[in-house]
Computed example of a mutant assay.
Amino acid sequence: MTALSFETFPPKSLNASFHLWDTVKAITPLGPRFVSVTYGAGGTTQELTQEAAQTLSKTSGLRVAAHLTCTGQSREEVLGTAKRYAKTGITDIVALRGDAPGGGAFEPHANGFSNSVELIEALAQTGNFNIRVGAYPDSHPDAASMAQNIDWLKAKIDAGASEAITQFFFEADSFLRFRDACTAAGINAPITPGILPVSNWASAQSFAKRCGTPIPAATVVAFDRAAREDRADLFALTHCADLCDTLINEGVDALHFYTLNRPELTVQVCRALGLAPAATLRKIA
């Protein structure tokens, strides 16, 4: 059975809170091995992330993984956040360098961690956390080459991370080539593909541009045609399900979905793959 996990983001308003709780309600029947809660760029949602992660951990019964970045904070501040997570029972951390607010170049805090490897080492030394990290099948925008991209991932695993979760991608071959290259480089930790169900094509294109994720020309043509023909939802479901099905057939045993707090398409994809529990019919007298 393919293991499932899901990413959410902390709400910034009362209405957004409803979206988060609806998301959790929708994905809980899928039996997630964990649910992650993101940080904003530069740690801009730090307090919201802590509040959402701790509330989910206490009330949902789900295993919660809190994102933690080192952008704009001292070592003491970052580790203080980690300590508060541990005190409330959250021992899963997704450790990331983080991006500067506004998309600028990363600048370490004067008294902070210089990169994600230093952050991972410090978290690992506490002995309190199961640490996951990011990975980039299409290479991180700051990496000079794919080889350097893979070297950084190996350094993060060697520093104490137990698993990598990838940035989303649009072709299964992107992940499969990356997985093979990581194996050749001696990376033995699990690498879980990150999946973005495209519920809004315009937003997905903007998101991909910000993340440095290339979109194949054929994919652009197909999504654009589906939108013109008023079948965008059906095509998005088919595209994502086909992508996941290919990965599973290639030996992938875990998927991580970026829900964007809009779980409907994610749930439909899981049902199409046979990964959601079947609905039961009550007997009618």
Rank of each mutant, 00 (worst) to 15 (best):
M1R: 13
T2L: 11
S5Q: 03
E7R: 02
T8Q: 01
T8V: 15
N15D: 13
S17W: 11
F18Y: 12
F18S: 13
H19N: 13
H19A: 15
H19R: 13
W21P: 05
D22G: 04
A26C: 12
T28K: 15
P32W: 06
F34A: 06
Y39R: 10
Y39F: 14
G43M: 10
L48C: 07
E51N: 08
A53W: 04
S60M: 10
L62K: 08
C70H: 02
E76F: 02
V78Y: 03
T81Y: 11
K83R: 08
K83L: 13
R84H: 08
K87E: 14
T88I: 07
T91R: 14
D92W: 13
V94G: 00
A95I: 07
G98F: 07
P108M: 04
N111Q: 10
F113A: 01
N115F: 01
S116P: 03
V117W: 02
Q125V: 06
T126H: 02
N128I: 00
A135W: 00
Y136H: 12
H140C: 05
H140M: 10
A143N: 03
A143C: 11
S145A: 05
Q148C: 00
Q148V: 10
I150N: 04
A159V: 08
A161D: 14
A161L: 11
Q167K: 07
Q167M: 13
F169W: 06
E171D: 15
A172G: 08
D173W: 06
S174N: 10
F175A: 04
F178C: 05
A181F: 13
A184G: 12
A185Q: 14
T192H: 12
T192C: 15
P193G: 07
N200M: 10
W201P: 05
S203G: 13
K209L: 15
K209M: 14
C211W: 02
I215S: 09
I215H: 09
T219Q: 09
T219P: 09
V220R: 11
R225N: 14
A226V: 10
E229Q: 14
R231F: 00
D233Y: 04
F235P: 03
A236I: 03
T238R: 11
C240A: 12
T246P: 03
L247W: 00
H256G: 08
Y258V: 04
Y258M: 10
Y258W: 09
T259I: 04
R262H: 14
P263I: 02
E264W: 10
E264A: 13
T266E: 00
L275S: 04
A278C: 13
L281W: 14
